[in-house]
Amino acid sequence: MSAMRVDAKVVMLGKESVGKTSLVERYVHHRFLVGPYQNTIGAAFVAKPIQVGDKVITLGIWDTAGSERYEAMSRIYYRGARAAIVCYDLTDSSSFQRARFWVKELQNCEEHCKIYLCGTKNDMIEADRSLRQIDYHDAQDFAEEIGAQHFETSSKSGNNVDELFHKVAEDYNNNAFQYMTAEDTGVDLGQKKDSYFYSCCHN
């Protein structure tokens, strides 16, 4: 078994229960789990290869726990990330405040990390428009202000989920060359030296 190589580190951030795990679950396993909500504990890592043009790029996705308990720990999860999917729940305005917090944190600590603002649970809005608490245009304006991409997704129906991750991989692919020449090492900044390519270096 040869270990998997990870090209781009992607981190999922956002208030608890906004649907980070469900997004990953939908994208990686093409399913939506019903049943009682299970908080993520700490964080979970999963590597997922994705075809971009004629290339295969492996995303190393960190699904973090939204609980404040892990806030102090969050740096280890987003450090060196090339992309952050900052999630908020379209039906919960407080989750958007939390998204702003994460955006600020990333802007301060991780300037090379591209931000993807993601409004979740779109299916609920479609079923009942009155549930919407975050206006599409407000979020869009905020995204433009911070130079982020903006998506509204549903993990339940699968709406826009593949598009989101595909965009992440595509952007990585388009920027990768630029990074390689810009950085003398060719390995992501701030990433522990041998951990990123932990396997290819060994073999």
Binding site: E25, Q38, N39, I41, G42, A43, A44, V46, D63, M73
Partner: peptide
């Protein structure tokens, strides 16, 4: 921790955990 949560079912979990009888002051990482 492991038995209560299905959240470790997918992928690999990485979580701080304090083992209080070992040391109440710090976290291990599991």
């Amino acid at each position: 921790l492991v038995g209560s949560s299905s959240s470790f079912r997918e992928g690999e979990g990485w979580t701080p955990i304090c083992l209080p009888k070992f040391n109440t002051a710090g976290f291990f990482h599991a």
